[in-house]
Design a protein around this nucleic acid. Structure first.
Length: 935
DNA sequence: GTCCTCACG
DNA sequence: ACGTACGTGAGGACC
């Protein structure tokens, strides 16, 4: 039955990883109906495999076939160069569990399925190629990976299944400018950013091919490097010789892999219908099962339409039964123990990590310890920076007993942290990766339980670890207060006793791991995997980098402003006291209310819930038509606000080391998907008032650089026009009209060229009102017109734009039915209050109407931010700040136009291709030495 | 800690 | 019948 591989045989080798990734990206995140297991990639993989086998049947059918997979993340190339493939992005979490299933699928098709520990699939393919060719057979490699092109020639061709194209010797020459036998020479010079092969800096494929063709081979080129005319190129080749030679060894495939099977084992075999259909049925692939059953002329097994089972009842119960037992938490002091932990981590491919530090501000925090957890209930803590006495780790204090050496610990952890193929699970990853960055460690390959919770439960509750642990694990973690106290007597973590720290820190890692296990299947069940994978997880390093950059703020400017404000306030205060007839604290609303309404007897004093008079700006404004005092108080309040919140407070936030202000962005702060900014909040720097706007003059670019502000024009209204399907609004946006004027024209029948500012202002207020879930009362208050008149405007608006009312009604209906609303990208915002009765129902309704619009805008700018670093990588520019619909950059003077063009393009195209908008997105640009000028 | 007020989109 | 524009964070007063 079995024949010996030889002349006339034709071996097809399928690059398994390529199939898997193509399948994963080509298909939506499908899940198995009965239990929510992600199976999109498996489904695509099976389809592709089946179609391939089907498509190759005929005259030149393969006699032998195999699917070759990678195994393990560590190969002999990592021993040569530890940075090899270190840039690889972490595997999406919903793909990981599908990998073993693709092996199972291959076997179910009765196709040979081969892999080797320590070798890449490419090496196995290379070895098989050589063997097959030596035996006189032919080979077709099914892959489009350029690393395999070196194997082409002498009966070996490649088939790019994506483009349905054969790649032969000419194809390789087209791609590399040299024949297959010189491909590795070109690759060694050109390097490869994807695999992190260094190559020769400044030399790409074109130049490399030119050089190789001129000198014949890489070795000759390097030997005769002195002869090269271009000085820069000559220098590079001489200085980087070793790096280039290393690169060649990295790209050269090993054709002597010690295989544990022979070519004869790969002989093509018919699948066993029972096994194959059994597997497909188990995966619950209805269409595919039926199609293959037909092809095999067999009976398709029945796939029951099982209702989803209770969420992993069995598994969950097991995990939840594992107690939180501090005795299973160990304190690691010996590097050998850590090495054992690392071996386990590498083996299983993931670990939960938490860092303990001396401060909440990552820019000034020192690392005190690291905790790890590899399975529920099991965790360790590595103390490295605990101190005794006064002073800190790097000055004054004594290092406490019983710890691991700081540098030893980090040098052991570094390769794991930087290896994107090992998943590091954090609660609030941004904090920890910034801490590790302080020590030159760039963490790659992260999961974040805080972001998972946000993607799953935004609007339902907060996403802090204590709350999540209590809610989802039924466990109250040790409060940090018990270790460091609170208030004035608070100590830093380095002063905490190592034993206590171990219990606390190990528990945090344990909890993080358990939350990850709990949330992972939920992401699929709730269909928010895409949101988490595309909108949340990739944003973390981007925000970390922006925070690290900070923005330059001029202390002198702020300090001068503070002084000027103080003087003016003192004068106003004197006047106010005189008008009041007594001295009082102008900053106390309570005292002010009593003075105005009780003592001076102003009309219209209204007490709120707490029994205090309301003294808000709107009330003082009304009073100021009758009295002098309220106007003075308004002026005083404005200055007080500017001084305390901005000109004084901002100075305190200037980092002494960098001279810049480093805000912190909270990714989970706003339910709609917006970011929020704290410490300091740089998203509410004044701009509306002339006095306040001047604070932006203190935000500057360093010498030789410029600030560039890019902001989306009317993004929320554009989204509204799209989602509500308002043709006239869409048309106005497409034609670049003044949207508020166009609205006014449509509503009041005033031609555009006769528009008055007053009518336009009213239309503008209505436009904004609509986004907020308009009410007659709210619009009346905003426009200071009678409520009936405001209601008349709204009625007319709905009449002219009937789609708006439908959109609002539909959104509320959807929210009531599902208790959440969605953005265009599928972000869910839960609206539990929509079921409430009474006044709360009104709030919830308006929030539900607003959330998809505000949230979609937030998603769009997030996508822009995620794509931005790569887009501007070659420009001398940094993205510094985000203010909801604006991005602020710092750019070298000469590159301003390039930056604006590139960044604008990224922003304007960021809705696509995930969603389609019927209206264009337009980004306005400004530049200047200060943020004030850039607007 | 909570309320009030006010800065931003 | 009720009280209302949506989403945030920070500072100061007051308990």
């Amino acid at each position: 039955m079995s024949t010996t591989f030889g002349k006339g045989c034709h071996l097809h080798l399928i690059d398994g990883s390529a199939f898997i990734f193509r399948a994963y990206h080509a298909l939506p995140p499908l899940t198995r109906k009965s239990d929510g297991l992600p199976i999109g990639a498996v489904s695509g993989f099976c389809n592709m495999l089946q179609r391939y086998v089907e498509g190759t049947a005929g005259a030149d059918a393969p006699t032998h076939i195999a699917v070759i997979f990678d195994k393990g993340s560590h190969t002999f190339r990592n021993d040569m160069y530890d940075q090899y493939k270190a840039n690889r992005e972490a595997m999406p979490e919903d793909l990981r569990p599908q990998i073993p299933l693709t092996r199972e699928a291959t076997r179910a098709f009765n196709i040979a399925c081969e892999e080797m520990e320590g070798y890449e699939a490419d090496d196995i393919i290379a070895t098989l190629c050589h063997q097959a060719r030596d035996a006189g057979g032919r080979v077709t490699i099914v892959s489009s990976d350029k690393d395999l092109m070196q194997l082409v020639g002498d009966g070996v061709v490649m088939f790019d299944a994506m483009k349905n194209k054969l790649i032969d010797r000419e194809g390789v020459e087209e791609k590399f400018g040299v024949g297959p036998e010189r491909v590795v020479d070109v690759q060694a010079l050109a390097g490869d950013s994807v695999d992190n092969v260094p190559g020769a800096p400044g030399i790409g494929i074109k130049t490399a091919a030119l050089l190789i063709n001129e000198y014949g081979s890489l070795e000759d080129l390097l030997d005769r490097a002195e002869e090269i005319k271009q000085p820069k190129r000559r220098q590079t080749l001489i200085e980087k010789r070793e790096q280039i030679e290393l690169s060649k060894r990295l790209v050269e495939l090993d054709c002597k892999t010690p295989l544990e099977f022979t070519l004869d084992d790969l002989e093509i075999r018919d699948p066993d219908p029972e096994v194959l259909l059994g597997f497909l049925a188990k995966m619950e692939f209805r269409t595919l099962t039926k199609r293959i059953a037909d092809a095999l002329d067999a009976e398709a097994p029945v796939i029951e339409d099982k209702a989803p089972t209770a969420p992993d009842a069995a598994d969950a119960a097991q995990v939840e039964d594992i107690p939180f037992a501090p005795e299973n938490y160990t304190c690691l002091t010996d590097p050998a123990q850590l090495e054992e932990w690392i071996a386990v981590i590498r083996q299983q491919g993931y670990v939960a990590i938490d860092t303990e530090t001396t401060a909440l501000d990552e820019m000034v925090a020192d690392l005190v310890g690291v905790s790890l957890s590899t399975e529920a209930g099991k965790a360790c803590y590595i103390p490295v920076g605990h101190t005794t006495g006064d002073g800190d780790l790097f000055g004054g204090a004594e290092k406490a007993e019983g710890q691991m050496d700081f540098d030893t610990c980090l040098s052991l952890l570094k390769p794991v942290l930087e290896d994107a193929s090992v998943l590091k699970i954090f609660q609030n990853a941004k904090y920890d990766i910034k801490i590790f960055q302080n020590y030159g460690i760039t963490v790659q390959g992260i999961a974040d339980t805080m972001l998972m919770s946000y993607a799953l439960y935004s609007g339902l509750h907060g996403h802090g670890m204590d709350a999540l642990s209590e809610r989802y694990l039924g466990h109250n973690p040790i409060p940090i207060k018990e270790l460091i106290g609170s208030g004035k007597s608070m100590i830093t973590f380095d002063k905490v006793d190592v034993e206590k720290a171990t219990r606390y820190a190990a528990e945090d890692a344990d909890i993080t791991l358990r939350l990850w296990q709990k949330f992972q299947p939920e992401l699929h069940r709730e269909k928010v995997t895409r949101v988490y994978e595309r909108l949340e997880r990739p944003l973390v390093p981007v925000l970390a980098q922006m925070e690290r950059e900070g923005v330059l703020v001029d202390r002198d400017t702020l300090s001068r402003m503070s002084n000027a404000f103080a003087q003016k306030m003192a004068m106003l205060e004197e006047e106010i006291h005189e008008l009041a007839g007594e001295k009082f604290n102008v900053g106390s609303p309570k005292q002010l209310g009593e003075i105005m309404f009780d003592k001076l007897g102003y009309e219209g004093g209204k007490k709120g819930k707490t029994g205090a008079y309301a003294t808000g700006a709107d009330i003082l404004e009304d009073l100021s038509t009758e009295h002098e005092l309220p106007g003075r108080v308004l002026d005083w309040r404005q200055l007080s606000k500017l001084k305390s919140t901005y000109t004084d407070a901002l100075q305190d936030h200037i980092n002494p080391d960098t001279g810049r202000v480093h805000t912190s962005y909270m990714q989970t702060g706003a339910a709609t998907g917006r970011l929020s900014s704290t410490d300091p909040n740089l998203q509410n720097i004044p701009i509306r008032s002339e006095e306040g706007r001047r604070i932006r003059e203190a935000f500057i670019a360093p010498e030789g650089k410029v600030l560039v502000a890019l902001d989306y024009s009317q993004i929320e209204l554009r989204i509204l026009a799209h989602v509500a399907g308002i043709d006239s609004l869409k048309e106005a946006f497409r034609e670049g009209q003044d949207i508020h004027a166009a609205t006014a024209s449509e509503m009041f029948g005033v031609p555009l060229d006769e528009m008055t500012p007053e009518v336009r202002r009213q239309a503008k207020a209505i436009n904004f009102g609509v986004i907020y879930g308009i009410s007659g009362f709210g619009l009346a208050r905003n426009l200071r017109i009678p409520r009936a008149e405001a209601q008349g405007f709204i009625d007319r608006y709905f009449e002219r734009f009937p789609g708006i009312k439908d959109y609002m009604d539909d959104t509320v209906t959807f929210a009531k039915e599902h208790l959440f609303v969605e953005t265009m990208f599928g972000r869910k915002i839960h609206t539990p209050e929509i079921a409430a009765k009474g006044p709360r129902a009104g709030f919830a309704k308006r929030a539900a109407i607003n959330a998809p619009i505000q949230g979609t805008a937030a998603d769009i700018i997030r996508r822009a931010m995620i794509r931005m670093p790569d887009a501007i990588a070659d420009l001398p520019a940094k993205m510094l700040l985000q203010v909801h619909d604006e991005l602020l950059f710092e750019v070298e003077e000469g590159a301003v136009d390039d930056l604006i063009k590139t960044a604008k393009d990224v922003m304007e195209s960021s809705a696509m291709p995930a969603i389609h908008l019927d209206v264009p997105l337009i980004v306005d640009a400004g530049r200047g030495r200060t943020w004030a000028e850039a607007h």
